[in-house]
């Protein structure tokens, strides 16, 4: 069994020769690889825990690679995608890249290009995963705040003074100071700047 940390490269190509070749290539550099003939197969069998990326053939029998990319996005499955195609055109690659593809490679491609793209995608996935973990942690902290505290936090990160906040929420300046202390404590923020960054990550908007 591979360790949970080993990143995995998923491959979807209807051409078995191509599929196997890419899998072999990826494996030769010590990465895990799994290949599927169709998107459906991928969706039903993929493992989600590890950092991973997807090598996706643009032309697939039932649903094109680009459509599959959209479907993934729609269902909030985030995985970095490297497109490969035998005859890509510019509009197709622009569309793919705009939709967040890591790379758009034309067959036959240089092996290093694919491997680089894969590494890059995995890094990106890794980064994405880390960010997602941070946000998840912040959210957990944020959920410990009382509604008045969340209100105060939002006003703090928006740059208002205590006096102003007190005015806004109809409380005394001292009360504000107490809430503000709770927020800083619960959010484990060392400074106001840090708290602002947290709020940013939590996408808290200034009301």
């Amino acid at each position: 069994m591979k360790s949970a940390n080993v990143p995995t490269v998923f491959i979807i190509d209807d051409d078995s020769g191509m599929r196997q070749s890419i899998q072999d290539l990826v494996e030769s550099v010590g990465l895990r690889a799994e290949s599927f003939a169709t998107g459906e197969e991928f969706l039903s069998k993929r493992r989600t825990g590890d950092p991973s990326c997807l090598v996706l053939d643009v032309r697939l029998p039932e649903m094109s690679g680009l459509d599959f990319q959209r479907q993934l996005a729609d269902t909030d499955i985030q995985i970095p995608i490297i497109f490969i195609t035998a005859h890509g055109d510019i509009s197709m690659s622009v569309r793919a890249l705009k939709s967040g593809a890591v790379e758009f490679l034309t067959k036959p491609f240089r092996d290093q290009d694919l491997l680089d793209a894969s590494q890059q995608a995995l890094l990106r996935d890794r980064a994405a995963r880390k960010q997602q973990a941070e946000v998840r942690d912040l959210k957990d902290r944020y959920h410990t705040l009382s509604p008045r505290e969340r209100e105060v936090m939002t006003l703090v990160v928006s740059g208002l003074l205590n006096k102003q906040i007190a005015y806004e929420i109809g409380a005394t300046e001292a009360t504000v100071k107490i809430h503000r202390g709770h927020v800083m404590q619960k959010m484990q923020a060392g400074s106001i700047v840090e708290l602002v960054r947290m709020a940013d990550k939590l996408k808290l908007c200034t009301p």
Partner: peptide, 9 residues
């Protein structure tokens, strides 16, 4: 392409 990729592998 498959052939080339295999060669590289």
């Amino acid at each position: 392409a498959a052939s080339i990729t295999s060669a590289n592998a």
